[in-house]
């Protein structure tokens, strides 16, 4: 696939992903009966944001303020390149695909921080610091949780990880890793219950307090797109990617991604928003030791299988 069609695929995929996550959010809160409302609401909000004025607060660091949504979208787009939607349907497949994915999402947090900082408002600054705390918390557990599939597949490449799950999905025999990955994904995408840096009622919107109009739309799209991507990566790592009977691989992949996203959104509703030092405690005192235990467990299981099988 040449560069242009790859770019097109990625952008349309991201747009679709953002829209579908928004629809899922509406469905989860309103219930399945309001499907029509759920389908139209995101478009309505997008239209409303597009016709608003594109303002920049006085005293804001305008370079950072204007560029933050684009940096966020760029990070998300670059990360989307390595997610294989189906056999042969991916942007590019470097041999370090998973590592590349985790690393490229770092600048997304930078974009959130820039957004908070550049607003020249205290709410934004508080939000920026809270967002930075997120980055420092999720990165290690996420990496360790992802090490399980890497060890099992003996490769960092997303395509190879999927191919290695043809027999048994990793989520089945690495449940701890799966759970840690899901929690880290919630951290990373600033979702309930970890949405304190940008939630509406927390200090007037946190990092997004001063954004209005089209820039806010870009940021919302980026946030939803990254949630979509992380669900997709969860499917790649733990739920067998595109494997599934009868239907073509991409359909399965999308279906599993939506199911995982819906599940994450749904469990988020049960928990009140955690205070951000509670989140940090959870990450460092809970997730990190659990992920180390997970590495040990998975290693032992692999050695047993290798010893028994070969």
């Amino acid at each position: 696939m040449n560069g242009f069609s790859v770019a097109l695929l990625v952008f349309s995929g991201l747009l679709f992903g953002a829209y579908s996550i928004a629809v899922l959010e509406q469905l989860i809160t309103l219930g399945l009966r309001h499907l029509g409302v759920a389908l139209v609401s995101p478009l309505a909000e997008a239209a409303a944001l597009l016709r608003q004025e594109n303002l920049v607060p006085r005293g804001a660091d305008s370079l950072l303020f204007r560029s933050s949504p684009f940096v966020a979208l760029t990070a998300v787009a670059l990360a989307a390149l390595v997610i294989p939607l189906g056999p042969g349907l991916f942007g590019f497949d470097p041999s370090i695909g998973l590592f590349y994915f985790i690393v490229v999402l770092g600048p997304f947090v930078i974009a959130m921080m820039n957004a908070g900082w550049s607003q020249n408002a205290k709410e934004g600054l508080f939000g920026a610091f809270r967002a930075a705390a997120h980055l420092l918390s999720y990165e290690v557990p996420l990496g360790f949780a992802a090490i399980g599939p890497v060890m099992a597949a003996e490769s960092l490449s997303t395509v190879r990880i999927i191919e290695a799950q043809a027999g048994l999905w990793y989520g089945v025999w690495q449940p701890l890793g799966f759970a840690i990955y899901l929690v880290s994904a919630l951290f990373m995408t600033y979702r309930r219950p970890f949405d304190i840096p940008q939630a509406g009622s927390e200090l007037e919107g946190g990092v997004l307090a001063e954004y209005a109009g089209p820039r806010l739309l870009l940021f919302s799209a980026a946030l939803r797109a990254i949630f979509f991507l992380l669900s997709a990566m969860g499917v790649v790592l733990f739920l067998g990617g595109w494997h599934g009977p009868l239907l073509p691989g991409s359909i399965w992949f999308l279906a599993k991604t939506f199911a995982l996203a819906a599940f994450l959104l749904w469990i988020g509703r049960f928990l009140p928003r955690l205070r951000h030092d509670q989140m940090l405690s959870l990450a460092w005192k809970g997730l990190l030791p659990a992920s180390l235990i997970n590495v040990a467990l998975v290693g032992i299981l692999i050695l047993i299988r290798q010893g028994g099988g070969s």
Partner: peptide, 18 residues
């Protein structure tokens, strides 16, 4: 040198952020 590039990004984003 993909791996080096990825490590470079990871280290510097985290470090400069702090």
């Amino acid at each position: 040198a993909d791996l080096l590039a990825a490590i470079q990004v990871m280290m510097n984003v985290g470090g400069m952020l702090v």
